[in-house]
Design a protein around this nucleic acid. Structure first.
Lengths: 183, 183
DNA sequence: ATAGAAGTAGACCAATCAGTCTAGTCATGC
DNA sequence: GCATGACTAGACTGATTGGTCTACTTCTAT
């Protein structure tokens, strides 16, 4: 039932995540999505760049969803942060250790376009802001919440990289112990 | 006085850092280094892959040097970590916000070769081990030192990404405040 | 002096790249 | 039933990719 457009963006996003923007050719994306080139340029008139932007948008929304689903049922911040890290580790395992941050691989490695840069900045800002919101809701002071959110974001970002390098999702699972030591 | 071989690896490393392994063509590297293709394949028989490995090696050595020069004169761990972050921020500014981790851009985005993966894992391990050594030398307990080193590495790694995304080296300078809150 | 190695120089190649274009299919509204 | 727009299909193009190859220069050791 997923539309061709959706399938293209989804598969492209996954491939970008694994190999980076320039590491994936249109041919590979097309084959993965089972779509011809005509469809791609019908749905994404600007081609690969449009595809990357759409893929990043989907990935960002999904990430926000994961953040919410981790913090919503949590009793306190530590609990939510831990759940988040474990969920990300699980995703990492499902993809067999080949994936990192879904948007930095797509947008940061792409052409040094202003559009890409702005989108990336906005997405990262939204993630941090969302974590901060949850932190405040769970009782952290505004200042502490800002620090909490930044630290969690940075370690997750770094954790993705290290987890990929060492093929070990336990690094993501060990994040809470590293970050929450002063709780 | 720098040899052609050295110049090739140096320029290639810088370009990989900015655009990722697949984002740079041999033509661009050759032009930047002012060398013809024959020289490249004379010094690096396996071409682009050899070049990336050599560039990553140089970058890793340089990073270890920066770590040492930050921690060696430090009175305590917090002091050394702060100096390190400020030095990295300065490098970031010099390159006009275009660079991130010198080796992950080169090796992680490259072909999913076992050689690349192993090299990356080894390099990251060496960085963390070096920070840990300094932490122990500066009086942290072995367990705490391991945590310190991991946390600093992860936040630097994440900080590079966020700094690039937001074109702001102050993120790197803000790392110590985030990481050392429980000192 | 000269042989041979080390290194430089760039023409050349097949493969792949992103992107364009025309033709055709399909669904929907009238 | 037919016209119209949405979408699929893939052949095709010019540029660029990494890599090979031969010719040439330069250095060094004898």
């Amino acid at each position: 039932m997923t539309s061709t457009r959706e399938k293209l963006a989804l598969k492209a996003g996954l491939l970008f995540q694994q190999k980076g923007y320039h590491g994936v050719g249109l041919a590979e994306i097309l084959q993965a999505a089972g779509a011809p080139k005509g469809s791609l340029y019908h749905h994404f008139p600007n081609g690969k760049a449009d595809l990357a932007l759409a893929a990043a948008d989907i990935a960002s929304t999904e990430m926000l969803r994961i953040i919410d689903s981790s913090f919503d049922p949590a009793q306190d911040y530590a609990n939510g942060a831990t759940t988040l890290c474990y969920k990300l580790a699980k995703f990492f395992d499902i993809q067999e250790g080949k994936i990192g941050c879904p948007v930095s691989a797509t947008l940061l490695e792409g052409p040094d376009n202003a559009t890409f840069q702005d989108a990336l900045k906005a997405i990262f800002g939204a993630w941090i802001a969302r974590i901060k919101d949850h932190a405040i809701r769970l009782g952290r002071g505004p200042e502490q919440a800002e620090k909490d959110a930044q630290l969690l974001f940075l370690t997750i970002q770094g954790g993705w990289t290290l987890a990929r390098a060492s093929h070990n999702s336990d690094i993501l699972r060990g994040l809470p112990a590293l970050v929450l030591s002063d709780t």
